[in-house]
Simulated scan of single mutants.
Amino acid sequence: MNVNNIKQNLNYIKTVIENGSLKENRVIINVMIAETIHGLKNTAFLFKVKYTSEGYKMHYSSYEKRAKKYKSRLLVDMEELERKLNKKPVNEKTCKKLIQKMLDTDLYTSYTQAVINQWQAKTKHYKTEAISI
C-alpha cells in the first residue's frame, strides 16, 4: 500500500465522520482501517538525504532511527483510531483530530524530513541519495 492510498483512506474516514454516516459505513471503515494498518507495516517511506562522500554516511543511522520512530507512532495512532471507532459511543471529535494530525504531518514524515533538511554539508560538493525506511 502506498502513502497516497493511506491518505485517501484517512480522508474518506474523516468525510464519513463529518457527514454523520458513521453508523451506516462502520463495516467498510473497519475493513479500510484493518487494510491500512496491514499495508502500513509493509510500506516504505522515502527520504532524500545529502552526503559528501561515500565514506561519510554516519548520519544515515540517526535518520533511519527517527523515521522508524515516527512510522511506529503512525501505526499506534492508526490502531488507536480503530479502537476509538469501535467504541459504542464514538467520540467523533477525537477521531477527526487524530486523523487531521496524521494528514497535517504528512503521515509523520514531515518531522523526519525537517531533521534531515537541517543537515548542512561542510563543502558545496554533495550528492543526494534516497533512503527507504
Score class of each variant (00 low, 15 high):
E92N: 15
C95T: 03
T36N: 03
V16H: 01
K23D: 11
E24V: 14
K57R: 15
T43A: 07
K124Q: 03
S132N: 08
A114L: 04
Y70G: 09
Q120M: 13
L46K: 14
G20K: 01
E79I: 05
N25L: 09
M58A: 13
S132F: 05
K88M: 04
K101N: 09
K68G: 02
I99M: 06
E82V: 02
L98A: 06
R73Q: 09
A44M: 08
D77G: 04
V16E: 05
K101R: 12
H125A: 10
H38P: 00
E79Q: 15
V16C: 06
K101H: 11
K65T: 08
D106T: 13
T128W: 00
E79Y: 00
K87I: 03
T94V: 15
T123V: 04
V90E: 01
K84M: 13
A34H: 11
K101P: 01
K88W: 02
N42T: 09
E24D: 14
K122S: 12
K88N: 12
N5A: 08
S110Q: 12
M78G: 05
M58K: 07
F45M: 14
L98V: 04
K14I: 02
F47I: 11
S53V: 05
K127N: 09
L107D: 04
L98N: 07
E64A: 09
D106I: 11
E64C: 02
I33N: 03
K50V: 08
L10A: 05
N5W: 00
S53A: 08
K14Q: 10
Y51H: 15
G55C: 08
S72F: 00
G39Q: 06
A44S: 12
I13G: 07
K97S: 14
E79H: 05
M32A: 11
E92V: 11
T109W: 03
T52G: 07
Y126F: 15
N25T: 09
T123G: 15
I29H: 05
W119S: 08
N9I: 13
E129G: 05
N117K: 13
K14R: 12
T123E: 14
N42V: 01
S72K: 10
Y108E: 09
Y56S: 15
T128N: 08
H38C: 04
K48M: 03
N117D: 14
M102T: 13
K122N: 10
N4H: 09
V115M: 13
N19A: 11
T36V: 13
Q8S: 12
L74H: 07
T94K: 11
N4L: 09
T109A: 06
L46D: 14
L40Q: 04
Q100F: 00
G39P: 01
T128V: 06
I131A: 04
K88R: 12
T94W: 00
N11M: 14
T112L: 06
Y51W: 05
E92H: 09
Y126L: 04
L74C: 14
L75A: 12
D106R: 14
A44R: 09
E54P: 02
I133H: 03
I6D: 03
K69G: 01
Y126C: 08
C95H: 00
Y56N: 15
N86K: 15
T109Y: 03
N9R: 07
S21A: 13
I13H: 01
L22Y: 10
K87N: 10
G39C: 01
S72N: 11
E82I: 00
H38A: 12
